[in-house]
């Protein structure tokens, strides 16, 4: 009995050591970025780990007031592109998922199969033709040129998630809606969409994270610095202020904040969407 107890205590110690070590490995780089942004170059060189003294707020303030870099501009670009992607994706994916989940038609399996093919086609395979296509459509350097491919590559996953959810809506509701005189679209808008808000929120937030962090598509499509999204802005900023690591760290910190805030606020949706949806769906 006693040996089990001391074994448990040892186990607890080991667990805290493992988690504590991992905590440091994750936290220290983030801490260095936040604090590094408050230092001047001399401080950064002599003491990258310590607290800033004196505290140099100018790095952050200059960025927030637009004196260095174009943080707000790039954040705006990221927001426009993410917003556009979410809006279009929610409409087209919900429509398609609704048809696939609740209507019986001959080619249903074929259509679903076509969407499923997307899981086999990585974005990298498509980039060269996609670039040429965007050039042909005059979408190079346009927000739409980033939005449309992002929507397209999200469709397979999100149609799958939505279809699973919409399928589970009881048939009785549909019959009741039919008695009330709703057609297919009435049922979709008045009943399916309101019932699906949790899954729609999940899809929206997953798409927001993916779009916010996406680097490849904007890299291919956008040329002008005024159109750059935050990840591209980071690369651009590093090119401009190559040796100014205190400025770069301040910029990185600012660029991380929106993602971290979003994660803290919408953690449940993000984790459930990425794991539960995939495992159970």
């Amino acid at each position: 009995m006693r040996s089990i107890k001391s074994g448990d205590r040892l186990m607890a110690v080991v667990r805290y050591c493992v988690c504590g070590a991992m905590f440091l490995i994750v936290a220290v780089p983030l801490y260095i970025a936040v604090m590094g942004g408050f230092k001047d170059m001399a401080q950064l060189q002599t003491d990258p780990m310590g607290l800033p003294s004196p505290l140099v707020a100018a790095n952050y303030l200059d960025m927030l007031t637009g004196k260095t870099g174009s943080f707000w501009r790039q954040m705006g670009n990221s927001l426009i592109i993410a917003g556009g992607t979410i809006a279009i994706l929610l409409v087209v994916a919900t429509f398609a998922a609704y048809a696939l989940a609740r209507m019986r038609f001959k080619l249903s399996c074929l259509v679903y199969g076509i969407f499923q093919l997307g899981f086999f086609f990585p974005l990298a395979v498509a980039i060269l033709p996609l670039y040429l296509q965007m050039r042909g459509l005059h979408l190079i350097d346009k927000y739409m040129g980033v939005i449309l491919p992002q929507v397209a590559f999200q469709i397979p996953m999100q149609v799958m998630l939505l279809r699973g959810f919409i399928k589970a809506i009881p048939d009785e509701l549909e019959e009741a809606a039919a008695i009330d005189g709703y057609g297919a679209f009435g049922f979709l808008l008045k009943i399916v969409v309101p019932l699906s808000t949790p899954i729609l929120a999940t899809v929206a937030i997953l798409t927001l994270v993916a779009s916010w962090n996406n680097f490849f598509t904007p890299l291919i499509v956008l040329n002008t610095a005024t159109k750059f999204t935050l990840p591209m802005g980071v690369m651009d900023f590093m090119g401009q202020y190559a040796a100014g690591w205190n400025l770069i760290l301040a910029f990185l910190t600012l660029a991380m904040v929106p993602a971290i805030v979003l994660y803290v606020l919408c953690q449940k949706y993000i984790v459930a969407g990425l794991t539960g949806g995939a495992i159970k769906g």
């Binding site: 279009i88 429509f95 398609a96 491919p149 397209a152």
Partner: peptide, 17 residues
């Protein structure tokens, strides 16, 4: 219901591949 998603998906994913 299906055309918008299909058109975007086919044009931006399948055709490029």
């Amino acid at each position: 219901l299906l055309a918008p998603a299909l058109i975007i998906f086919i044009a931006m994913v399948l055709v490029p591949v």
